[in-house]
């Protein structure tokens, strides 16, 4: 119980809320560290996944890349990125933010598989009959994608983005290992200096941020999904002819 008292005291200490290593500053760094690679991954993986889902071409390649990507541990991706890229980044004159860039690149690759897979699956699973109806009514490929496949596949697509976002927010903590800012600092520095109240407080904030991310994206999913896809009111009803007899 004493330990929790210390953690509470850590949160109560105004010094931990101010300055470059205060909680707001660290959350800000953490968000930048997360949002940039997530946005980049969405920009790349969504169109690629959607197009592959639409055409059905190269689907095996995508699935395999995604599976391999998922199998590699996050820390390994980060270490790999640091080894392969740090030197180059420093060489091109970005020494000051080299750690951040390396971490963002690692997180970018981490975010790709769920977004890519779900974009592909979401589009690919759209009923062929519906797609055929769209084509038969004179939609062009892009119109089918934009007006039919993406909106119908949206719930699945957004689950991919949410999964990636939560993963990125959680994993951005590891950036501290290669000397970035963000909430990982509390944990890494706390361990190094045996300040376990700070370690625990940092872990709590990361967990809260991850949960907030999860809830935020769930909210967006609900808002963005057409009511027609929400699976409610699935029981067929005869409205115009309520009680209409089939014979007397």
């Amino acid at each position: 119980m004493e330990f929790f008292g210390e953690v509470a005291a850590w949160f109560a200490d105004p010094a931990n809320w101010n300055g470059p290593d205060g909680i707001p500053a660290r959350i800000g760094e953490h968000l930048v560290l997360s949002i940039v690679p997530l946005a980049a991954a969405v920009a790349v993986a969504l169109p690629v996944g959607a197009w592959i889902g639409h055409t059905g071409r190269f689907s095996n390649l995508v699935i395999n890349i995604a599976n391999v990507g998922r199998a590699i541990p996050s820390l390994a991706i980060l270490a790999l990125a640091a080894m392969l890229l740090q030197r180059t980044i420093v060489d091109i004159g970005l020494r000051d933010s080299a750690s951040e860039i390396v971490t963002m690149i690692a997180l970018f690759f981490l975010a790709i598989p769920p977004i890519l897979t779900n974009a592909y699956v979401g589009i690919n699973e759209v009923d062929d009959q519906i797609v055929e109806a769209g084509r038969g009514m004179g939609m062009r490929d892009l119109e089918i994608l934009r007006r039919v496949e993406i909106p119908v596949g949206l719930p699945v697509i957004l689950v991919g983005v949410r999964t990636a976002a939560v993963q990125v927010v959680a994993t951005a903590t590891l950036g501290a290992v290669v000397a970035t800012g963000g909430l990982g600092r509390y944990i890494i520095d706390g361990i190094a200096q045996r300040r376990f109240d700070e370690v625990f407080a940092g872990a709590l904030i990361v967990a809260a941020l991850s949960i907030a991310t999860e809830l935020g994206f769930s909210f967006i999913e609900r808002r963005a999904t057409s009511p027609g896809l929400r699976g409610r009111d699935t029981a067929p009803r005869e409205l115009a002819q309520a009680g209409r007899p089939g014979g007397i």
């Binding site: 109806a133 004179g138 939609m139 896809l229």
Partner: peptide
């Protein structure tokens, strides 16, 4: 596509767009 927009098309499962 021009041609298809000028020909009505009804398919077996009707193929209504569920999100619209």
């Amino acid at each position: 596509v021009e041609l298809r927009r000028r020909i009505g098309y009804v398919i077996q499962q009707i193929g209504l767009f569920p999100h619209l």
